[in-house]
């Protein structure tokens, strides 16, 4: 039986995906959760990739921060769960 705990990864699992979208190193970017206001580095967020898309959740309140769908050569990125994203210039 699949261990459910194994399905949750940490934010380092989306390092490559975020580089494709944002084209800069993003794992040290800090996002503010639109739901609870917690600020977390990308490396600390909770990631679910065994799904039709990638779902990123706040480690403090489990609400959705980002959803990324990749198909037919396109990306769909929902970031309504991130109120502010702070990252260093490259």
């Amino acid at each position: 039986m699949t261990q459910v705990q194994d399905m949750k990864l940490d934010g380092n699992a989306i390092a490559g995906l975020l580089r494709e979208i944002f084209a800069v190193e993003m794992t040290t970017a800090r996002g503010t959760c639109a739901s609870c206001g917690a600020v977390n580095e990308v490396g600390r967020v909770e990631v679910y990739i065994h799904a039709p898309g990638t779902v990123v959740r706040c480690p403090d309140c489990e609400q959705v921060l980002m959803r990324v769908v990749h198909g037919r050569g396109r990306y769909w990125v929902d970031m309504t769960g991130v109120r502010c994203l702070e990252f260093a210039e490259s």
Binding site: P52, G53, R67, V69, G71, R74, D78
Partner: peptide, 22 residues
Amino acid sequence: FWESNGYNMYGDPWREQRYWGD
């Protein structure tokens, strides 16, 4: 949840309605 972010509103597998615009 998925239909608002790229996945098809209807999703008929026989017509491969996977994404928006399929």
